[in-house]
Simulated assay, not measured.
Amino acid sequence: MTPFHKYHGAGNDFILLDDREGKLLHQFDQPTIARWCDRHFGIGADGLMLLRNHPDYDFEMVYYNSDGAPSSMCGNGGRCIVRFAADMGIVKEAFHFLAVDGPHRANLLPNGWVSLEMLDVTEVSRPQPDVFVLDTGSPHYITFREDVAGIDVFREGRSLRNSAPYKEKGININFVCEDEDGLTILTYERGVEDETLACGTGVTAAAIAAIFRAGVADGYFHVPVKAKGGNLAVRGQLTEGRFTNLWLEGPAVRVFGGEMD
Results as ranks from 00 to 15, higher is better:
H5Y: 12
E193S: 08
F28I: 02
F154Q: 07
P139I: 00
C80A: 08
M260W: 15
S72A: 13
D46M: 00
V223Y: 06
T143I: 14
F175Y: 12
N174T: 09
F84H: 04
G200Q: 05
V153C: 05
T196K: 07
E146V: 02
S138W: 06
L25E: 15
N65A: 03
F59P: 03
L17F: 06
Q128P: 06
G241M: 10
V131C: 10
R145D: 05
P139F: 00
W36G: 01
L98Y: 08
M1E: 10
M88A: 13
R83H: 08
E123H: 10
D19H: 01
F84M: 02
G241N: 02
T239M: 08
L24H: 05
V223R: 11
Q128V: 08
G44E: 05
A233H: 07
W247C: 09
G230E: 09
I142E: 00
P165D: 03
P55N: 07
D152F: 02
D135G: 12
H54E: 11
D218E: 11
I33H: 05
L119N: 11
R20Q: 14
A252C: 07
F221G: 05
A10R: 00
R158N: 15
R155L: 13
M1W: 09
T239V: 15
T239I: 12
R242C: 08
Y220E: 07
V62S: 01
G258M: 09
G89R: 08
K92P: 03
V223F: 10
G170T: 08
N107D: 11
E117P: 09
R105W: 10
Q27G: 10
L48P: 06
E249V: 07
V223W: 06
S115C: 08
D67C: 04
G241S: 04
A85K: 01
R190V: 05
P129C: 09
C199Q: 02
F132C: 05
G157I: 04
E146Y: 04
D194R: 12
G219H: 13
E193Y: 04
S163A: 14
R213L: 02
N174D: 12
G229T: 06
Q128K: 12
L25P: 07
W113G: 01
E117Q: 15
L183Q: 11
R20V: 14
T122K: 14
M61L: 07
G258W: 07
T204C: 10
E180M: 10
G137Q: 04
K167A: 15
G241L: 11
L51P: 03
Y188S: 05
D13I: 09
E189D: 11
V133I: 15
L51D: 05
Y166K: 04
R242G: 02
E259V: 14
T204I: 06
R52A: 13
R79W: 03
G219L: 10
L160I: 15
P110A: 11
I208V: 08
L17R: 01
W247N: 07
V100M: 08
T136R: 02
S115A: 14
Q237P: 00
D46H: 00
E240P: 06
G191Y: 09
I208A: 01
I171H: 03
F144C: 03
G150K: 00
R254A: 13
V176G: 03
S163G: 15
V255M: 12
E193I: 11
F59L: 06
